[in-house]
């Protein structure tokens, strides 16, 4: 890890689902490189991008986006997901659980943090650079 760049943060927004296009792959690879270099990485899953949070992705021949996100989270990347986009797509099973301190979801990677659009804005405010993926 390079000294002196630890405090810089790269924020990445994903707007498309994995597998239909390469955008999620590009995001993951760029995020992995950024973490290797010692930058903080924060990811926001938005719109169909929330499908990247699905548990147990097992593509036979494609780049595994779910595994990559899991690895990134283990290394310390913050992964946030749009709450209303996730609710719309069936990821959220009930109200906020005060005990667990999160929204219940058996379908999403447990490292994913659900938030409103303000959560994304906070991410933008903190970021040194921001990239958006998959809007086409």
């Amino acid at each position: 890890m390079v000294e002196g760049i630890r405090n810089k943060t790269l924020a990445l927004m994903l707007f498309s689902s994995p597998y239909r296009s390469q955008y999620a792959d590009h995001l993951c690879r760029i995020a992995e490189k950024a973490m290797e270099k010692g930058y903080n990485v924060e990811i926001f899953l938005y719109g169909d991008g929330v499908h990247a949070q699905m548990n147990n992705q097992t593509p036979k021949t494609f780049f595994n986006v779910g595994e990559s996100l899991k690895r990134l989270a283990e290394k310390g990347a913050l992964i946030k997901s749009c709450l209303i986009c996730s609710q719309a797509r069936g990821y959220i099973e009930g109200d906020f659980d005060e005990k667990l301190g999160k929204y219940p979801s058996s379908k999403a990677l447990n490292t994913v943090e659900f938030c409103t659009i303000y959560g994304f804005v906070d991410m933008i405010l903190k970021a040194d650079k921001l990239l958006t993926f998959g809007s086409s």
């Binding site: 707007f15 938005y46 719109g47 169909d48 409103t116 659009i117 303000y118 994304f120 804005v121 906070d122 933008i124 405010l125 809007s135």
Partner: peptide, 26 residues
């Protein structure tokens, strides 16, 4: 925003970010 409204979520989602950022002073 470079997509038309309604047929795709893009325009809505782009405006929605603006509606989140403006109240936070962005």
């Amino acid at each position: 925003i470079s997509h038309p409204p309604y047929g795709h979520e893009n325009a809505y989602s782009g405006f929605f970010v603006a509606l989140g950022s403006l109240p936070k002073g962005v």
